[in-house]
């Protein structure tokens, strides 16, 4: 690995994450959603693997927490799904209700569907990174050590 790749990799990580977030929040208005955002973000992490190897990446990033991130995302989405039931509404009934006014944050509409999408994002991100980590870990065990 050359120094250049490492620098590029390091630089790319925030930018992929920002792209991902953009895709996530823009999803309602345009192509893309939590899922695509998560995969894009996962690519950013994957790049670190390619650049620094599994060990180093594992040290720099909170990989161990990935399953937890994943299941937190699932729990978040589930809460959005079943939360309305507590208020006597149908599951997944989003608030603000259809047709009602929405609070804007700039051009971003604040809406429970967004929280739902965030859950999707966390879960898929956790999955993609977690799966790669597991494969890399297995590789390490298989042949001592080495990048993907």
């Amino acid at each position: 690995m050359t120094v250049l790749t490492r620098v590029i990799a390091r630089l790319l990580l925030p930018s992929t994450l920002i792209t991902a977030i953009a895709v996530l929040v823009k999803g309602y208005g345009d192509v893309g959603d939590g899922f695509s955002a998560a995969v894009i973000a996962a690519f950013g992490v994957l790049l670190q693997y390619v650049a620094f190897g599994h060990r180093a990446a594992a040290r720099a990033l909170p990989l161990r927490a990935m399953p937890a991130v994943s299941f937190a995302g699932l729990l978040l989405a589930l809460l959005v799904t079943f939360g309305p039931v507590l208020r006597g509404q149908a599951p997944l009934a989003h608030s603000p209700a259809p047709g009602a006014d929405v609070i804007y944050l700039g051009t971003l509409e604040l809406h429970t569907a967004l929280v739902f999408d965030l859950g999707v994002f966390l879960l898929v991100f956790g999955f993609a990174v977690g799966a790669i980590d597991l494969i890399a870990g297995a590789t390490d065990r298989e042949r001592g050590q080495g990048p993907l």
């Binding site: 399953p67 299941f71 729990l75 589930l78 079943f82 039931v85």
Partner: peptide, 18 residues
Amino acid sequence: LVLPLAIVWLAAVPLALL
């Protein structure tokens, strides 16, 4: 109608981490 579904679904998530 939702209750049985919600119970098992919600319970599965924390159990996955234990």
